[in-house]
């Protein structure tokens, strides 16, 4: 016993209104609902009763949880990489800056080579990593977190 096109649309509308908006998961859940309802229709229930039972089985709160869990699973790896990037760029920018200062002091004391140029190169590299690596990564991470909190 299969469900009519209009009834399939009604199921999809329920899923979308409950906050599910990942197309692939909407298709999965729509088919899941249809299967549950078809089982109930075979048992002699009307579509309305079967759909009401299915909604009790998977209420809007559960649908929102499916949405947020799926997003979590799909983005957790990139989030970890993002945080790693923030820590690494922070480390290298500080490391290069401090290294420039140490080498400069050492060379001045020993009277060897172009101390000022080496310090300039290392500290500039440190600032470049800070300005074009650390800060953009930090701001984009903060922005994504802010948007996620707004959508939650």
């Amino acid at each position: 016993m299969s469900i009519r096109e209009q009834q399939i649309k009604e199921i999809r509308k329920y899923l979308l209104e409950s906050g599910l908006d990942i197309p692939a998961v909407v298709d999965d859940m729509q088919d899941h609902f249809c299967c549950v309802i078809e089982d109930s229709l075979r048992a002699g229930n009307s579509f309305e009763t079967a759909f009401a039972e299915a909604r009790l089985l998977v209420p809007p709160e559960d649908i929102r949880e499916i949405q947020s869990d799926t997003i979590y699973y799909l983005t957790i790896k990139s989030k970890i990489m993002h945080v790693k990037g923030i820590f690494l760029t922070a480390f290298f920018s500080v490391f290069l800056y401090v290294l420039g200062t140490i080498i400069y002091k050492f060379m001045i004391l020993s009277g060897a080579g172009p101390a000022g140029e080496i310090r300039f190169i290392l500290q500039t590299l440190g600032l470049v990593v800070f300005g074009f690596g650390f800060l953009p990564l930090l701001f984009s991470f903060g922005y994504k977190q802010f948007v996620a909190r707004l959508q939650a």
Partner: peptide, 15 residues
């Protein structure tokens, strides 16, 4: 298996 456990896992394994 609850829908809330199955579908997020299926999509994670797919990714």
């Amino acid at each position: 298996i609850k829908e809330g456990s199955l579908y997020p896992l299926l999509h994670a394994l797919l990714a």
